[in-house]
Simulated scan of single mutants.
Amino acid sequence: MNMTLILLAAGDSLRFNGNKLLYEINGKPMYRYIIEAIDQLPDGLFSRKLIVTQYDEIMEYMKDSGYKIIANRDSRLGISHSIHLALKELEKDDTDFFFAVCDQPYLQSSTIEALVKGFRESRKGLACLCFRGELGNPAIFSGQYRKKLMELTGDRGGKKIIAAHMSDVFLLEAEDARELKDIDVMPL
């Protein structure tokens, strides 16, 4: 089965006091960390790669990356709108969906690879990273969950679907809680 990587990079960073995705951590914009982690993965792990963003700086950086860039010009509609835009792009594809956010700079490529491998071996319809029972990102949805993803509204992502179908979820326990940490507020 094909798996498409979908990077979500369109959030408004309302609690951050600025564009958190462009915020530099150790001299590099935050969003680049996950892209670099993905670049370390084996070729062929993902059949396609998409990034959904509202930011011209990210679009410019990604233009020659091999990712399909999808512009989200209505980010105020929440994360569900980014999900819908990606799924509309993949309307004719028979694929599973690997969703990742771009504000988790400590996520490791080995964890991403282990999540994909565990999902495939488990034969479950869903997967996500967790730490001590706390569900996090990234998350994988088999194609059978496309309709439920399209029913999401507002700033509610796929965790709602995962929580409602726990018997169909492969959970990968992160080795370090930092991997799940998304940066929502300006560091002090």
Rank of each mutant, 00 (worst) to 15 (best):
N2T: 01
I6K: 10
L7A: 08
A9E: 09
A9N: 09
D12N: 14
L14V: 13
L14A: 13
R15I: 05
F16P: 11
N17G: 15
G18D: 12
N19T: 09
K20R: 15
Y23C: 06
I25A: 07
I25Q: 13
K28H: 06
P29G: 01
Y31T: 01
R32D: 03
I34R: 08
E36M: 12
A37G: 01
I38E: 15
D39P: 03
D43M: 07
G44V: 04
R48T: 03
I51A: 06
D56R: 12
I58G: 00
I58E: 01
E60S: 15
E60F: 12
M62R: 14
G66M: 14
G66Y: 15
Y67L: 07
R76K: 08
L77R: 13
G78N: 14
I79H: 09
S80P: 03
S80H: 09
H81Q: 11
L85W: 02
A86G: 06
L90H: 03
K92V: 05
T95C: 08
D96V: 01
D96H: 06
D96C: 05
F98T: 07
A100N: 10
C102A: 14
C102S: 13
D103P: 08
Q104G: 01
S110Y: 04
S110C: 06
I112N: 13
I112C: 12
I112Y: 10
E113K: 15
A114I: 07
L115S: 09
V116D: 10
G118N: 10
G118D: 07
F119I: 02
F119E: 00
F119A: 02
R123K: 15
G125K: 04
C128L: 07
F131W: 11
G133F: 03
E134P: 00
L135P: 00
L135Y: 08
N137V: 01
N137P: 00
I140Q: 02
I140H: 01
I140T: 00
G143T: 01
G143K: 08
Q144I: 02
Q144P: 00
K147Y: 05
L149Q: 02
L152H: 05
L152E: 08
L152W: 12
L152T: 11
G157S: 06
G158D: 04
G158L: 05
K159N: 06
K160M: 13
I161S: 05
A163S: 11
H165I: 00
H165V: 00
S167F: 06
V169Q: 06
F170Y: 15
L172V: 07
L172F: 07
A174G: 07
A174W: 04
A177E: 13
K181E: 13
I183H: 02
M186S: 03
M186C: 04
L188E: 11
